[in-house]
Design a protein around this nucleic acid. Structure first.
Lengths: 370, 370
DNA sequence: TTGTAGGCGTTATCAC
DNA sequence: GTGATAACGCCTACAA
């Protein structure tokens, strides 16, 4: 491995001068010396050892991503994070705790020992412990997606309540008054807020809240099917279902089919999280699309900006608006029309002092060529 | 930040001894000293600085993943890689070139400068240059998924030809003789092999090869729709289509719908790459599922094993078998039957001296709880 | 304008 | 058994 000494020797100069060239300190340096050194660097194809640089400079130019679940949402968001990192010259380390809350803490320690400059975190639970650990470790961080209600740190989240409300209002405008919903256990803010939006929409439109129409299920394959069947097998079954998660939406559709019911004849369904497959279902599925890619970009850029500014600013909360994608039923589709045709309802941000993030970004799905 | 010196001071010993404890060198050490030091470490919650360790030991315990496209396949495979890394105590850096072949090379350099111990690479093109760069950089590596025909290095791939043949044979057994196929441009082995499998199946069953039934399209949204429409609008249109990529399958289904045709009444479709949504289509879609998660695990463990064994072994090629998942048509589904019910055809490995990877692993989809 | 020397936090090779 | 001490490869006052 060629080192800075090799370059110095070849160029016949001291290594401090080489170091200056590497770091772009050309302030008081003769053109001649600079030329000699750059020549030598090229000749040896020398690249500095980041480890040594980092040890000295106390920064690694690497940020870490600590997520509870690298699920479909995060796998898209990850690309946004990665893209922003590349653009800003940062490396990216990733870790997943796979739903073991202890591992989130462990992973943070791991990242710290690798000396990442900052962290994007999205734990599943224990946000408080995570927050405390992060501050005690004195590591710059940004919460993303999932957060903690009393959190005072930087964060990038989607306005989940607004998304849920919009989904519900779509159903209400279609004339539904008995709307069921299905959720995963309320372990984090994202999940709680979806329920909040459900309730808020009912309240807003003067509809009664029937707790028995709310089904909360444990994570796991197929648990949603049972839940939805319970909902559908009642005599006073709901005429619409708001599914709050993509995995649950799969279960809901399976359940509806198992119950021998028809969408949208017997029951309407709106799902949270969009999928490339939604337009291909029969009928095409209306969903709330969360701009995952964009969130990844925002989270990374907020963190990096934080790393690069000297003076600490006050915590910033960036909210990203989900989009309701209303898809026509298959019957209404003209044969020559694109099956992907849909109306996109851009939710408006009602909150005041928050960063507007309504640029016309992609939803993260289909945002790259294949 | 607390250092090894702080620990030494607190314990009243030299830092050499502390270092021994950290590295588990208890060979010639009194119980007493060990106790004192462990106590001090705990008290200060001391964690060694990986940078300094790595600088000295010349290993970082980090591996890198360099992929051309963090698409749906790799986003699942990534979880496998990550899981194996965590199990073996390695960190993971990721990078994506987003279809810019130059960036693959750039990312490799970046990883090298960060001094990763090894690399899992899956470039889109220029496998030869990548291979050469990797060897010239003297960095241990494993090709994964996509590879290069003349490659002699370690690699973990799926037997794409076998997968394609099986898909085709399914269609042939259903009585189809005019089968169209749709592919992305043949830039890498994975893509070429799918075409190869298409041809091989025809040959094997004595069916004629009609080049005009083979549609090759550029990457990009919706290009597949045009291609499939060309296929379907001919008077002698094929009675079945083998779609070689998930994105293309979406386009194929859209195209079929736009042409006003019915699956499977007018035309049969088999897709490469499975999706959670496949069983929910009407009719459920038959696909070739590629065990992405498993491939990630295998790639990581092969690399790590390579890193940890002293003597270089001869290059190893691990082949993973895709699985054909035959789904019943909706009409045949009993209402109380799971919509996900499907026959899984486990392809048999016909090759001789290759590692068997037919354990009953998951396909990567649905392999985690949500 | 350039070079010398010390130190970043460890590990490893010696002595003792 | 334990402790100095010299690297590891780079950066950066400070001196020249």
């Amino acid at each position: 491995m060629t080192t800075i000494d090799d370059v110095a020797k070849l160029a016949g100069v001291s290594k401090s001068s080489v170091s200056r060239v590497i770091n772009g300190n050309f302030q008081y340096m003769s053109e001649e010396m600079r030329g000699k050194i750059e020549q030598a660097i090229k000749e040896l194809d020398y690249r500095p050892n980041s480890l040594a640089q980092s040890l000295k400079k106390k920064e690694t130019k690497v940020i870490g991503l600590v997520v509870g679940d690298l699920n479909s949402f995060w796998s898209v968001a990850l690309r946004g994070v990665q893209e922003e990192c590349m653009r800003s010259g940062y490396g990216l380390m990733v870790s997943e705790s796979a739903w073991d809350p202890e591992k989130d803490l462990e992973n943070i320690h791991m990242m710290k020992s690798k000396r990442v400059d900052g962290l994007i975190v999205s734990p599943i639970r224990q946000h408080k412990q995570v927050d405390e650990l992060l501050t005690s470790l004195d590591i710059p961080y940004v919460f993303a997606d999932s957060t903690w209600d009393e959190v005072v740190s930087d964060q990038v989240v989607t306005n989940t309540v607004a998304g849920a409300v919009e989904a519900m209002e779509h159903l209400i405008q279609l004339g539904h008054t008995r709307i069921g919903t299905i959720l995963f256990t309320l372990e984090n803010s994202v999940r709680r807020e979806r329920l909040e939006g459900y309730k808020e929409a009912l309240r807003k439109h003067g509809l009664p809240l029937d707790e028995s129409l709310i089904k909360i299920c444990k994570a796991g394959k197929g648990t949603g099917v049972e839940a939805v069947l319970e909902l559908l097998n009642r005599p006073d079954r709901p005429t619409a279902i708001f599914s709050t998660n993509m995995h649950l939406t799969l279960d809901v559709l399976k359940g509806v089919r198992q119950a021998g019911l028809d969408v949208p004849g017997d029951i309407s369904v709106v799902g949270y999280d969009d999928s490339e497959w939604a337009p291909l279902l029969d009928p095409p599925l209306t969903t709330v699309a969360v701009p995952a890619f964009q969130m990844g970009v925002k989270a990374a850029s907020l963190l990096i900006q934080k790393l690069q500014s000297k003076k600490p600013k006050k915590p910033k909360k960036i909210e990203i608006m989900p989009k309701l994608i209303i898809r026509h039923s298959a019957a209404e589709l003209h044969p020559k029309q694109s099956a992907d045709e849909a109306s996109v309802v851009q939710l408006t941000d009602h909150s005041a002092a928050k960063e507007k993030t309504n640029e016309n970004h992609s939803t993260g799905i289909n945002s790259r060529k294949a």
